[in-house]
Nucleic acid binder design. Structure first.
Lengths: 194, 194
DNA sequence: CGTCGCATTGATATCGCTCAAATCCGGTGG
DNA sequence: CCACCGGATTTGAGCGATATCAATGCGACG
């Protein structure tokens, strides 16, 4: 897995900084670049016809975003910095050149895309669950990476609610109910499945 | 986009046939191969804890599946033929060799993964919509490829319901309501957004 | 001709959404 | 240091949409 910006691309990359709420690109604009988050966080989102926010992806430090736009003409979503953020951006052309010239990098890039694909499919699976508590349980199972089984939540619970396809009120209530009935334990921003 | 099996892989590929309902691989078994559907259809699915089916992907003729398993140890879902199906299967090792040796194929494979990624993200967006009619509308907008704006539904409406994260009863009712109120038109297995 | 699965519609219950209000907490400016 | 502000968190009340259970028709297929 790539979690550093490839050195071979550094010469062609440009650095950009954004304030919280800053717009990086907009849905429908020509997709010329692929991005890498150096620091901060970026939210990829679209708006439904009623104006509700749909978060497609939340990219954090060390992650690429808009990776799939290499052979797409336009961006399919808005990209907005949720905090103070610096990104590196390369043109699709440069990236394609590196892929063509460097088989090792091509292999890494394929791994990256495959990993993303598995992650998004996991999310589809989660959103296919009909009950709120099942989604929370699925989330905790998938994220069970912490040593003691604790899952740390990045960002606010409100953000998590959006990721789970729930309103924040429902998520708060669901967490409270699951905690009371002894299904999960909570410690600060960490959760554990019991 | 790749819609034929790459000739360079043919020597290393093996062909297999399955009857309707035949099991191709099971969740948790070691992922050694990547598959290509020659004819028929394959459903990638998991089961929730209540036994309900969650369809992750429906692969049809000319499509790969389990593409993301190249650098994964185990399959994360079941693969089942929904009709009489023949597949070509290659080992991950052979595929990786081709990627390393043939930059043009590597490029095509990256396009394939990027395309899959966009498709799954579209589905996440759809599942994030809270109302049944919004999901139907979103589906028809995304699939608006037909000449006269008609979207042909592959498979049964029951399958579509699963893809939209709805029960089949709700989908039937939603379609009926939208048709009565003039939002969509229906002609056999084709639908149009008005 | 019987069976099986899809399509369709009805009745009902439940879960999550919506609107609303109160509290908490971190940051900011005076 | 304190007052204030905005956003997150939490809980309440009520409603509506969707799931669930149930029944029927229909076509395909053996």
């Amino acid at each position: 897995m790539i979690n550093e910006f490839p050195a071979a691309l550094l010469p062609c990359a440009t650095r950009a900084s954004y304030k919280p709420g800053g717009l990086i690109f907009r849905v429908g604009s020509p997709s010329k670049a692929v991005f890498f988050v150096e620091a901060g966080a970026v939210r990829l989102m679209r708006r439904g016809r009623n104006g509700e926010e749909i978060v497609l992806y939340q990219a954090r430090a060390g992650e690429f975003f808009a990776e799939a736009s290499i052979d797409s003409v336009r961006y399919h979503c808005d990209a907005i910095a949720t905090e103070a953020t610096t990104v590196l951006k390369t043109t699709s052309a440069d990236l394609l050149r590196l892929i063509a010239d460097d088989p090792v990098f091509a292999r890494q890039w394929i791994s990256l895309l495959a990993h993303q694909l598995r992650a998004v499919r996991t999310r589809v699976e989660r959103l296919s669950l009909k009950s709120a508590s099942e989604r929370v349980r699925h989330f905790l199972l998938a994220g069970a990476s912490g040593a003691d089984g604790d899952v740390k939540v990045n960002g606010t619970l409100k953000d998590l609610a959006r990721e789970l396809g729930l309103t924040h009120e429902t998520l708060y209530r669901t967490i409270a109910t699951m905690e009371r009935s002894g299904q999960i334990a909570r410690r600060g921003d960490g959760f554990r499945l019991l």
